[in-house]
Design a protein around this nucleic acid. Sequence first.
DNA 1: ATGCTTGCAAATCCTTTGCATAGTC
DNA 2: GACTATGCAAAGGATTTGCAAGCAT
Lengths: 142, 142
Amino acid sequence: MDSDGSIIKALRTKGYRATAQRIAISRYALTSRAHPSARQVYDEVRSTHPTVSLATVYKTLQVLREMGLLQELNFPEGEARFDSYMRPHLHLICRRCGKIIDVEDQAAQDLLNVASRARFTVTGLRVDMYGVCQKCARRNGS
Amino acid sequence: MDSDGSIIKALRTKGYRATAQRIAISRYALTSRAHPSARQVYDEVRSTHPTVSLATVYKTLQVLREMGLLQELNFPEGEARFDSYMRPHLHLICRRCGKIIDVEDQAAQDLLNVASRARFTVTGLRVDMYGVCQKCARRNGS
DNA sequence: ATGCTTGCAAATCCTTTGCATAGTC
DNA sequence: GACTATGCAAAGGATTTGCAAGCAT
């Protein structure tokens, strides 16, 4: 899902038109591992498509969400961030530097099993662990 | 942390004044298991304190958050919900009925161990599993 | 008495929407 | 050509803030 061809195909299959803006926005949003906000996607895409609007970015991100290609992460403060890594995984979110680290681990699968035992059909998973990353702990002590 | 006495003590210990509004808001927010929104807390508290304002509810919920007594849960749509169940646990969030079910399970602890192995110091945990609860699955088929 | 807290209204932030124009299929 | 998507500006919803008056300590 990272080449333009597959993006175009995915859009058309779902009945969406493959415009230049959507392709550029999707390319960045679906390949970035930085969990970008809508504005960060906007800033990035504007370097190649200077006329794109923030509204189009928001609309396209919603389209990608409906297509099941990314997840919107909301936080108590600031903008939502978008995560295109859709396999079950964990987030380590550093309160000092703000970085979101993805961790793939069996523990994520184990969560799905807990749900399944409770007769709950899972369609989406989000795991956030807040704290201090190793780098920040070293830098600032404690 | 559910009697008025302990709420008052907790507030004063942290340097906050124990006003009637704060006590009423805290009592409801810290004992409800319904993961209420700020407005729901407001509506509830107004039944006994008709003059309370929504702004005070928001301010008090932030105070409780700073005190580490509750967690703010943000979602892509609608208001934030507040969760005073602070031990590690999982949320099963039904996309049909909207209910948030708390599940205490070893799997939550296992997540903390994963973080610790990555030399990440965890101070907060949030696990959301979206899907369809048993009740809704029965009712609507699928 | 001091200064934190309240309630009101206005302001703010992020996101969505309406609509005329442009572009895709 | 029909119909969707874009870009702009304006609207929207949730939450926060400024401030005078009211309380807790």
